Computed example of a mutant assay.
Amino acid sequence: MVALPVNAGRNNLGDLEIYKAAESGGAVLTLMLDTSGSMGTVDFGTESRLTILKRALTDLLSKKDANGNYTLSSDNIIGLGQYSVDKDGNGSVDGKAGSILVPARKLDEAQRTKLIATLTGFRASGNTPAANAYAEAGAYMMGTTTVELEDKEEKNLQSFRSSC
């Protein structure tokens, strides 16, 4: 049996502590954006889904408050990926995968610039390989990639076909 003091886990806050403003602890985010062909669709007005998405994220990354501070804290760590991409490097979007384009880094001025520049270059094309893209984002967050696995699976499949 372990004896714990009655106030274990409690913070003894002074009167002024309860009036202190909440502070953000920051977050680690890897945004995997859909840039497939359907994002070229114009649902309302004259702008495509992708145009609206790019503008909203650019505004989020660049917006400042009345004091000139970014509203999205520099304590955050943000990266960016997209799907559908040219995963095999033949110059055409294959509709089979996603890719991390901007590694997750602290949201300093340089990172904001990279994120916005990358967003600006997005074009709607290809299919929607959401599961593959999210697997790539998950692998990235764990410090690896799905590319080697896909290559091994393709080699195994080719080997199996040739043995039949």
Results as ranks from 00 to 15, higher is better:
Leu157Lys: 12
Gly98Glu: 04
Ala3Gly: 01
Gly81Cys: 06
Leu50Gln: 10
Tyr134Glu: 10
Arg161Trp: 01
Ala117Lys: 09
Glu154Phe: 08
Gly9His: 04
Ser73Pro: 12
Ala3Ser: 04
Lys87Gly: 06
Asn7His: 08
Val93Thr: 14
Arg161Pro: 00
Thr128Ala: 00
Leu72Gln: 09
Leu61Ala: 04
Ala130Thr: 11
Ser73Cys: 13
Asn12Pro: 02
Arg112Phe: 00
Gly126Phe: 06
Leu149Ile: 14
Asn127Phe: 00
Ala22Leu: 12
Val2Gln: 04
Thr30Trp: 06
Tyr140Lys: 06
Thr113Gly: 00
Glu154Gln: 14
Arg112Asn: 00
Tyr134Asn: 07
Ala135Ser: 14
Asn67His: 06
Ser74Met: 07
Gly26Ser: 07
Ser84His: 04
Asn69Gln: 13
Gly37Cys: 06
Thr146Met: 08
Asn7Ser: 08
Ser38Cys: 05
Ile78Trp: 02
Ser125Phe: 04
Thr113Trp: 00
Ala27Met: 14
Gly79Ile: 03
Ser84Pro: 00
Lys64Tyr: 09
Thr146Pro: 01
Leu107Pro: 04
Pro5Lys: 02
Thr120Ile: 04
Ala110Trp: 00
Gly121Gln: 15
Gly45Asn: 08
Met142Thr: 05
Gly37Phe: 10
Lys106Pro: 01
Leu101Gln: 13
Asn7Gly: 02
Leu60Ser: 14
Ala130Asp: 01
Tyr140Cys: 05
Ala21Cys: 08
Arg123Ala: 14
Asp43Thr: 13
Arg105Trp: 01
Asn12Ala: 09
Tyr83Phe: 15
Leu149Glu: 12
Gly126Lys: 06
Ala56Phe: 08
Gly40Ala: 15
Asp94Gly: 04
Ala110Ser: 07
Arg49His: 07
Leu31Thr: 07
Ser84Gly: 05
Gly40Leu: 09
Lys96Trp: 07
Arg112Ala: 02
Gly79Leu: 09
Gly45Met: 07
Gly121Ser: 13
